[in-house]
Design a binder for these strands. Structure first.
Length: 266
DNA sequence: CTGCTATGC
DNA sequence: GCATAGCAG
């Protein structure tokens, strides 16, 4: 090889080798391809509407992805008693959701933004299996959250939710940021930064349903959780999402117009 | 628990 | 780029 070609060739080999190396070690998906895909782990009866989203069902949660906002408008899943395990798992890397056709945002949009990659379906709720845990690290399950909010009241609410699950049993949870026009954006892909986040928790109580809906600003607050409780109607009003649309109308109306603070131990 | 960043390969 | 360790709220 002539000397003048040595360095360009070496650089090319190293570049291609590096690319192969990275692609070999970075999984494209956290799904178990040997397992039959779960059509939908979430009962359709409880599924919200998609206002401008593409609904994607993973094995352990379902979401509606809003491409213009580069994040999910809602993430829905069951939290069951048997999910409440505390295996020590290693956090994997955030990767694009292979099931979102338009590609979910790259995690690098968040780097140096000042905002956390805040889980919508919490990793702490999906520790019962490796796949369940890893699935929560798809960037379709991530939203820009204020650091103190994510580690603060949002985290405390997630922990409280786990304690409710332990006490009351299975919970159906829908959560997300309030996506609207004119939000601040981060990264090359313009990931929107929600000003508000909501979380709706539903369970059966005897032969009826009871639910809690929280609407809170994307910043740390020291008030009690009760300060942020709203009727589900309020969350529908600000998000445009129709929750529990497949339930009988009377049930839905009654469920969404009220709060049920007394059904839940704070 | 919720995460980020620095450092080495 | 990944892996690990350390740190912070």
């Amino acid at each position: 090889m002539k000397r003048k070609y040595f360095y360009p060739s070496a650089i090319a080999v190293l570049t291609i080798g590096f690319w192969l190396f990275n692609n070999f070690y970075t999984p494209a998906s956290y799904s178990d391809t040997n397992q039959k895909p779960v059509k939908n782990n979430v009962n359709d009866q409880y599924m919200p509407s998609a206002t401008h989203g593409e609904i994607v069902a993973h094995n352990y949660f379902t979401l509606s992805y809003s491409e213009p906002h580069e994040q999910a408008e809602w993430v829905a899943y069951w939290l069951k008693r048997e999910h409440l395990t505390y295996e020590d798992r290693k956090r994997p890397y955030f990767i694009e959701d292979p099931k979102v056709k338009t590609k979910s945002a790259d995690w690098k949009n968040y780097r140096g933004s000042g905002y956390d990659r805040g889980h919508l379906c919490p990793a702490g709720d999906r520790r019962f299996s490796l796949q369940a845990y890893n699935e929560t690290f798809y960037t379709s399950n991530i939203s820009p959250q204020d650091r103190a909010f994510n580690a603060g009241i949002w985290n405390r609410l997630e922990q409280k939710t786990r304690s409710w699950c332990k006490k009351y049993g299975d919970l159906f949870i829908v959560t997300g940021g309030v996506l609207e026009n004119g939000l601040a954006e981060i990264g090359e892909e313009d990931v929107d930064v929600p000003k508000m986040f909501y979380k709706i928790i539903l369970r059966k109580k005897g032969d009826r349903f009871t639910a809690l809906a929280f609407l809170m600003p994307n910043k740390e607050r020291k008030e009690a959780f009760q300060s942020f409780i709203v009727p589900i109607d309020k969350v529908e009003q600000v998000t445009g999402i129709d929750f529990f649309k497949s339930m009988p109308k009377e049930v839905q109306d009654q469920l969404e117009a009220n709060t049920f603070v007394d059904d839940w131990n704070f």
